[in-house]
Design a protein around this nucleic acid. Sequence first.
DNA 1: TTTCATGCAAAGGTTTTGCATACGC
DNA 2: GCGTATGCAAAACCTTTGCATGAAA
Lengths: 155, 155
Amino acid sequence: MPGNALERMREQLNAQDYKFTPQRSMVLQVLTEHPDEHLSADEIYARVKVKYPDIGMATIYRTLDLLTNLNIVNKVNFGDGKSRFEISQKERHQHHHLICLSCNEIIEVKDDLLIQLEKTITKEHDFEIIDHMVQFYGHCKKCSEKDNKTKNKPQ
Amino acid sequence: MPGNALERMREQLNAQDYKFTPQRSMVLQVLTEHPDEHLSADEIYARVKVKYPDIGMATIYRTLDLLTNLNIVNKVNFGDGKSRFEISQKERHQHHHLICLSCNEIIEVKDDLLIQLEKTITKEHDFEIIDHMVQFYGHCKKCSEKDNKTKNKPQ
DNA sequence: TTTCATGCAAAGGTTTTGCATACGC
DNA sequence: GCGTATGCAAAACCTTTGCATGAAA
């Protein structure tokens, strides 16, 4: 359901006296078209600019901020010095990220095993969980293999 | 063992032809003295400056980078625009963070429930996990109670 | 028409870099 | 003494903000 998020945004904007502008629409469109990438503000800017050359960077940031507050978009951070954005978990499955420390590849894992952990935490800490971010750091298959070769037989 | 990380750093530095300088020593010392806070570069700078007034910000960053690469220190990010640093998980228990979306309080949870999830991921994705970062976003007890009284007001 | 949104440029904040000097080994 | 580390200042980034203009409702 591609138009879903767009329609949802229009309703939420109207309900709170915000305006539904072409710029806001296009930012969301870019995000829905790339559900499995983790675009930075800069990358979103470049993609929107193709169809709407007059857009400014400030609008990108203000829109991403708005969409994040509306819980339509998630802001994530992989420690590379910039924020990245993706359609909210609620629009998709829960997922975690595997980040390879050798090649920096980001692998997505769809999984709901965290639900049990969330229940425990909610109970023990009186903490109402709305969202989570889970990242595993390590070595992906390719890099592990490469590493083993380099270790056993030096080039 | 408080001197543990310091000794480990000295050895690792020597082994790789890096030098053991007072600046590096003091940065690590500050981090071991505050194991449960999540200090930013700026905060570490201020604390080191008390005992070593001539230190420069660049040295702080270069040292934190080095310690992170040596896996002595962990770089974490709570989305507040700056990186934060803490003694590596290996020196302590595994822990997760609960981040309150209302008051921004960061609560630590020590827990090893993630081990099962890690095993599953390792098996299914051939991904060798070295470390993880887990953050739960939601509302803490205090804010949940406050919210119920003040409903209908976003932000 | 009223109010909010936009684009631009400038400012703010964090982190990195170049370079001459100082220091650990 | 050699090669790295440091401090300083400037630069490089990413992100936010002020303000006049423009557009949605």
